[in-house]
Write a protein that binds this DNA or RNA. Structure first.
Lengths: 226, 226
DNA sequence: GTCTATACGGCGATAGAC
DNA sequence: GTCTATCGCCGTATAGAC
């Protein structure tokens, strides 16, 4: 599936794309690297090659531009991931899908997006990582943009682990979420720490390890009485 | 062990603590909530009840103040965690400690700090979460302040899993790190998502689940051929 | 040494003229 | 749809009071 309908995926010919889109692209890139407060409208405008005031004209306040950046790709991500979850549930036998299948359905679309090499999408995912870890807006924005999908995912886990303590499942999701978003953030820390033996740029490896790790972890806390 | 020698742990009598300390406390709190760029020196000075210029007098540039905040508690955390790792290795039988023991030694001191209820320490941990997820400085600063401890921890894991693929261990650490720092961040997201069934304020639950989760996860990716 | 008052150049977001 | 103007706050430097 094409992950970027209606979205300029940072084409070479920058001048042909609408200025409004160029502003969103620039904002996405800068916000993803330095967060909301670390970026100025002038920097965004400069990177987009437009006048400062054009951003305000199109989007209003700085915060509204930030929201517009988040919103632009949210629907697409949610569609792709919901489809993956549908397929996972449909293809399962009468006992339902395995934990691995559910987690793979949740993660793999993101891995595909990240591995596509589209820098716009990579910036978007890094921005989500920033949002998720923000004490200021993490709760509000993640709830606003991704709650239905997350709740479906957690529900599938509950069905696959009918005897599990509910609280354990929420904590398991929380850990998965933290690990996932640190992977999005691409700080370079794992490269440094491992002396190059593990690389953040090796997206396939990141997800290939993440799926069995999280499945085993969730099984672990749901099996053990705490 | 006392986790806060020489450090004012946000006492009631705010006026008695040295102004330099009050500046650090205020900076710690504000940086932890809004990040480096989201805070101004004037806000910090105002919260500390001092003149703006005093921060510059004591610390120089804004970035130097930020570093001073990080440095202040880093040595203490590292000491406590190194001791926990020492004890874990000493107490182990000739086969060495289990994965669970190693992870518990790595995590439990942080759980104790967080559960102590000291708001200064809680702000500090939230700030570390911010740093860890920062594409701008995450790699540089985490390496600078915590690398020796992290390398010891990873080494202990390698010894406990002699047949494991090295890359898998680094990825396992990476996931643990992401989960841990999202827990520090206390965004309130897990409360919201679970409808109150799991609470970020329940630190004991967070760590009680985290230890078996991570142990099972690391076992999982080290056992399976990928 | 510790601290305050003040000032400066620069850039922030935004509104209003064009 | 575009640009200029404005006002306030930014980080920082400094002169001097205690």
């Amino acid at each position: 599936m094409n992950i970027s309908p209606n979205i300029s995926t940072t084409p070479k010919d920058g001048t042909k794309t609408p200025r409004k889109t160029r502003i969103l692209d620039a904002a996405e890139e800068l916000f993803s690297k330095r967060g909301f407060h670390g970026v100025t409208l002038r920097q965004i405008a400069s990177m987009a090659g437009v006048d400062v005031a054009l951003a305000s004209y199109h989007f209003g306040r700085k915060r509204a531009l930030f929201d517009a950046v988040l919103l632009r790709r949210a629907e697409i991500v949610n569609t792709v991931r919901n489809e993956a979850l549908d397929k996972c549930l449909d293809n399962a036998g009468k006992n339902g899908p395995s934990i691995e299948d559910i987690i793979a359905a949740y993660l793999r679309p993101l891995g595909d997006i990240q591995a596509s090499g589209d820098s716009g999408w990579q910036n978007y995912l890094a921005l989500i990582a920033w949002v998720n870890n923000s004490p200021e807006w993490g709760d509000e924005l993640m709830t606003q943009y991704f709650n239905p999908l997350v709740l479906r995912f957690i529900d599938a886990l509950k069905q696959a682990l009918p005897d599990a303590d509910e609280q354990a499942i929420y904590w398991g999701y929380h850990y998965l979420s933290g690990a996932l978003t640190l992977t999005f953030a691409e700080t370079g820390r794992i490269d440094q720490l491992s002396g190059g033996k593990a690389k953040a740029s090796n997206i396939k490896a990141a997800y290939a390890h993440m799926i069995p790790f999280m499945a085993a972890g969730i099984r672990g806390i749901c099996a053990s009485k705490l």
